[in-house]
């Protein structure tokens, strides 16, 4: 993990018709072999960042390079070393599944023979072999997504970009795609993905950049990010009664960093979990709050996002 593949310096995008800065002086380095995640809510600037790196969005200022090629000065060469999977299905509807791969290979300079052979190999590998001659209209959402990934890696790009790759996929297809991406990662493929699913970033990514309002808020491994909050346990108390008061009292606990009212209970963030459950129940009893359930979990990237911004990722 030493060769930088993507580098941005003060990369900024301000859209003409908006007062907001979509991406604000972003400094980022992605190294060879990483699965790098840009995590943030809608409007955080993730897609705009990916758009600038893949040459579709022209930066207002700053620099960005992919595999050492400046994406603004030399977009044609930059595109040659990238594979892109966009949020929407962009498969060629007038071609068959196999032809989609074949012509992609030709587009990136492969000979007819190589393109045909690699298309066949990829179709088998992505379990699309029996659909080779089918129209792309016949594919389910998950299969179309797999074909788009197959197409994007066919010319062996230096970096694979995926914009919200599992948005709109059913849970099974999502797991299947995670499996595919993990395998590519094991083979050494550098991947940059944007996502607003914290589980996706947590499970897949070697490093995660958390973004909000166009700014980079934190950047580390998922474990590093979670450790940075200083919270090692989250206690979720399902209860009925005066929850506001319960939250106030729990926040005073030794080792508690914060407590807030959620749907039908209180969520407590603590850094030492010794005897915390017993204390929580004692306090609740003392306040006359009826406790239905207590759950103890580890912090997630959601916790990190909340501690950084004070709001939930899903908002």
């Amino acid at each position: 993990m030493t060769t930088p593949v993507i580098e941005t310096h003060e990369l900024t995008k301000r859209y003409a018709n908006s007062d907001l800065v979509a991406v604000d002086r972003l400094d980022l380095t992605v190294f060879e072999g990483e699965i790098f995640g840009l995590l943030g809510p809608n409007g955080a600037g993730k897609t705009t960042t990916a758009g600038m790196l893949t040459t579709r969005v022209v930066p207002t200022s700053g620099r960005a390079s992919v595999a050492g090629i400046d994406v603004v000065a030399d977009p044609a060469r930059a595109k040659a070393v990238q594979g892109v999977v966009s949020q929407v299905n962009t498969l060629d509807r007038q071609l068959t599944v196999e032809e989609n791969l074949y012509f992609h290979g030709r587009l990136f300079g492969m000979s007819a023979r190589d393109a045909r052979r690699d298309a066949a190999t990829l179709l088998e590998r992505f379990q699309l072999g029996r659909w080779a001659r089918a129209s792309v209209y016949a594919l389910s959402g998950g299969m179309a997504q797999r074909l788009m990934v197959a197409r994007a890696i066919m010319h062996r790009p230096t970096v694979l970009f995926l914009d919200e790759p599992t948005a709109g996929l059913d849970p099974q297809s999502r797991l299947a795609l995670w499996e595919v991406l993990s395998e590519l990662h094991r083979e050494g493929q550098t991947i940059l993905l944007t996502t607003h699913y914290m589980e996706e970033a947590d499970q897949l990514c070697t490093r995660v950049a958390i973004m909000d309002h166009g700014r980079l808020l934190a950047l580390d491994t998922p474990e590093g990010l979670k450790a940075s909050t200083g919270i090692d346990t989250i206690v979720t108390v399902s209860a009925s009664g005066d929850l506001e008061r319960l939250a106030e009292h729990l926040a005073d606990l030794d080792g508690a960093s914060s407590a807030r009212v959620i749907d039908s209970g209180v969520e407590l963030h603590v850094s030492h979990r010794e005897r915390v459950l017993a204390t929580v129940i004692e306090r609740a009893d003392a306040l006359g709050v009826e406790v239905h359930d207590v759950a103890v979990t580890s912090p997630t990237l959601e916790t990190v996002f909340i501690s950084l911004t004070g709001k939930e990722l899903r908002d």
Binding site: A76, F103, G109, D118
Partner: peptide, 28 residues
């Protein structure tokens, strides 16, 4: 997967563009 593919990054801009153009014509 093939190993004979010339990496797109090492070819000249004109070669890469020409190949892309013909592939698009071929597709049509």
């Amino acid at each position: 997967m093939a190993t004979t593919l010339l990496s797109a990054g090492t070819r000249s801009r004109a070669q890469t563009s020409r190949a892309a153009f013909w592939a698009l014509i071929l597709r049509d």
